[in-house]
Amino acid sequence: MNETTQEPSQPIVKNQKQALGIPLAIVIAGGLIAGAVFFGLKGNPTPSPTAVAPQAQQVAEQDAGKALENMKPVASDDHIRGNPDAPIKIVEYSDTECPFCKRFHETMKQVIDEYGDTGKVAWVYRHFPLDQLHPKARKEAEALECAGAQGGNDTFWKYADRLYEITQSNDRLDPAELPKIAQYIGIDVSKFNECLSSGTYAEHVANDLENAVATGGRGTPWSIFVAPDGTKFPINGAQPYEAVKQLIENALKSS
């Protein structure tokens, strides 16, 4: 007897293709994740991210809210746009070659346009270059610091605004553009080049990156919203202006 019948409560169709679908999907899923782990751990000779790896693992085990307390306090050596004593601070960890950081840069400019003049919000900029995705971002972060070192806080922001304006993101900015930006904003190009090639600010950038990871940052833009009472809220990604505005309004109402 080749013909079989089944109880109504049993599957009516025992399709071979359907039966193959599940293990195939699971094998593909497993393969992808295993591949991600393998290549991710094997493939990166860059020293800095490797150096932060144990810390990242440690942070992953911590409560996400507690990790925010690892944020380096806002200090006078930070790059701040708006009133440094503003009750609300938004500390952004950013990668100049990330397209979403470029988008969020405009959002934050809009925030400062609305809340900066009244002294209610301060925007603090820190570096979070993702070397594996954007190898050029680390040097660009140093370029921002070199501009700031030469002309102060305003020059830092002018350089940052111009860089975000002209970069096409995803590592497409020609490094030759960096001194051109310096020239564009009116600082001494030879001093700028000297600063950039000396790597004076490499450690500063590395410290920012390390702090971003310690606070729970896993991608960019990564921002920490500090309310007037000191409560910290993480903002992951390029959130719309309306979302940032609502957070600000809530914080102002409850203060």
């Binding site: 991600a36 991710g40 990564w222």
Partner: peptide, 23 residues
């Protein structure tokens, strides 16, 4: 799209996750 800020990178840790994406 958000430069590494995906659930997978959270799952694997920042280095493993972002490193995997580059491949």
């Amino acid at each position: 799209a958000a430069c590494g800020s995906i659930i997978l990178t959270s799952f694997l840790g920042v280095v493993g996750g972002i490193g995997a994406l580059t491949y």
